[in-house]
Design a protein around this nucleic acid. Structure first.
Lengths: 370, 370
DNA sequence: TGACGGCAGGCAATCGTTTCCGTATTTTCC
DNA sequence: GGAAAATACGGAAACGATTGCCTGCCGTCA
């Protein structure tokens, strides 16, 4: 039996997927020619009769290159690994949606994994993705003092951060400081002077920066927030519920609460109501991210909209850019921390005079490099 | 230069990932032996001195097999493709979370894609996943009369459905008919006789079955629902808002509304409020799925809990089971439609007398094969 | 002591693609 | 028309694993 005959080629393979060999044979060219022609077919029209035949046959047979084989050879998978704390968090799933669709239009597929915001899971899942030989990683769960990032950089794994930042690494975030300032100014404008802040997880730059921006704006307006009025919590409704309880057990109750996350704000509202307050009337509540239900709540929630979809998309672009750059082993591009502009939407939860749930934005959202 | 020397093996590769060859060389065995030893290492202890050396070296070098190479050879990728309408829908992301974590413990990784509940996207993304040579698909977006499923079956692509069913194909769903009946009985118990239903997308079995179960239970109790009181909508808050408006423009207003999805119910509540009703007081509202914020809303939402995480996990198991079965090209397993038991949680949106938001379940949730 | 079964281990083919390196052919330009 | 440059094409070697087949060693048992 010759090498060829061993493959049950012509008989059984009728149903199997066509390979380059099938196309080459039918077109009467070599496999290498078929490969080259198809590689070029994406950029320009076929440039010879043989090339035309190859393209036509590939078309007819619905040829799809075997990506395992290709990436075995090229060491590239055209897959991006994505880590997020949790996809059930609407904020992260929205970011991921933007990320995935941008990646797709750049010719990459994504694989996503939940890390539950735990360092161990972060490392474990990242290593699983790297075993799959993803071309790069996008981390949505970077922590302040995240040693794993340094390790990745040392191993020269291309990666970018999204949602949270960690200079000097590439990242795309909302301009959280600016967003926090919008809230501080807004609350000060309304005359509040006793303000509590639910600042989220201490290891996340999102919460830290939003809280800090708010404090900064307030201080500039002469409003001081005692440090015991800044409490931490998880980024979900339960966390907000607990945090609001802790915050309000102080007898000198706040007249306003800024929660750095909408779900947290929703939980806080629940707690306030349980405590006999009327959110939006007795006490102002402001959230962050402006998730879609924020404006649909019974008491529509004032919130800072962060461009989540766009953040994901920019992160994908940033990473792909770096990936392509690293191809000619040439100079590195300087790291980029992209901060997208936030926008405040005032609604009844902070300002009962706002007539409707859905207020058009006050400031145009433009991106700025930093 | 001999073949070996051409690889920049010992010098430059110090940093690169170790391959079987590296291990074999260092252990003084052939590559095939190294491969076999490592394959067996997962099940039992090494059975010879050489085997011990191989395992130790692999351990020390943190050897990870190259999955591209392995799957090129074995035609298996240990990846499952997952299609969902949208991950930003908490229902789907919860299902996916259960699915992914079960898949992981079964030794599979998942790749997920949004299809926006569109047939074209469904097909396009599924084909992309199949190009990646995923071992099987899990579809969370099956439609009634979904021709693509028949095509997949004809092409012998292993797949399973989740959330929505489509006999005779493998599926894992909530027992939506039973869930609907719980709601019908509940509303009838409360004395409602004018009931509107927001039944979701007409192409989804979830909405259809939940609505039908409710109608069935009501009919048994002598309550008739005119067909114009059953309206369709998308599965998000906007859809519920619109649908409730349509429903209530009928002058003979309903005293209760069953929305087959919690987000839809939330939107409906918003609309009712805009129309001057007081949901929970004037008009009962019941949702479905019992997403986490349902119980945290200002007027806590009565809802039927469907075991979303478990659904995803069972779907993964079902597919992996089929995958392993199809290995010895032997007999096929009979198709399975697994329906998981739902559970009603009564809260203030339908029954103001329910004292707290969080009512423990009335019936134990057990799985039943069908 | 010799036949035999079991098992460890080596050789080599193979999966499907990309890409280096020649040679053959065409085009370009004087 | 001919030399030079550009291009097309084929052969063959990888990429890193899995696996069928074969050899040789070991122990067992009659």
């Amino acid at each position: 039996m010759g090498g060829r005959a061993v493959r049950d080629h012509d008989a059984v393979r009728a149903t199997a997927r066509p390979t380059l060999r099938d196309i080459a044979e039918e077109a009467g060219v070599s496999i290498s020619t078929a490969s080259r022609v198809l590689a070029r077919a994406r950029t320009g029209p076929p440039r010879s009769a043989a090339a035309e035949r190859v393209v036509a046959i590939a078309e007819r047979l619905h040829y799809q290159p075997d990506l395992s084989a290709a990436s075995l050879r090229t060491r590239r998978t055209r897959m991006l690994g994505v880590l997020v704390p949790r996809l059930t968090d609407i904020v992260l799933s929205t970011i991921y949606e933007g990320l995935d669709s941008a990646a797709e239009s750049l010719g990459y597929q994504t694989v996503v994994a939940n890390t539950l915001d735990s360092s161990e899971e972060q490392r474990r899942r990242a290593e699983m993705l790297l075993t799959r030989r993803v071309d790069g990683l996008i981390l949505g769960d970077a922590r302040i003092d995240d040693a794993y990032l340094d390790e990745l950089a040392a191993r020269r794994v291309p990666f970018a951060l999204v949602s949270r930042s960690h200079p000097p690494y590439d990242s795309v975030t909302c301009d959280d400081l600016a967003g926090g300032r919008l809230v501080g100014d807004h609350l000060a404008d309304l005359g509040h002077r006793r303000i509590g802040i639910i600042a989220g997880e201490p290891h996340a730059t999102t919460g830290r920066d939003r809280a800090q921006g708010c404090l900064e704006a307030l201080r500039r307006r002469g409003v001081d927030v005692p440090s015991s009025w800044v409490v931490h919590s998880t980024f979900d409704a339960e966390g907000g519920y607990d945090a609001a309880h802790r915050l309000m057990q102080d007898s000198t109750a706040a007249t306003a609460i800024f929660a750095v996350n909408d779900m947290t704000a929703i939980g806080a509202i629940g707690a306030l109501r349980d405590l006999g307050h009327r959110p939006g009337t007795d006490i102002a509540v402001v959230g962050f991210n402006d998730i879609s239900i924020a404006g649909q709540l019974p008491v529509p929630l004032t919130s800072v909209r962060s461009p989540l979809t766009q953040m994901g998309a920019e992160a994908a672009r940033l990473l792909v850019d770096r990936l392509q750059l690293s191809r000619p082993e040439a100079r590195e591009r300087a790291p980029v921390q992209l901060r997208l502009a936030p926008q405040l939407f005032v609604r009844a939860s902070s300002d009962p005079s706002s007539t409707e749930g859905w207020t058009p934005g006050l400031r145009a959202g433009t991106a700025s490099r930093a």
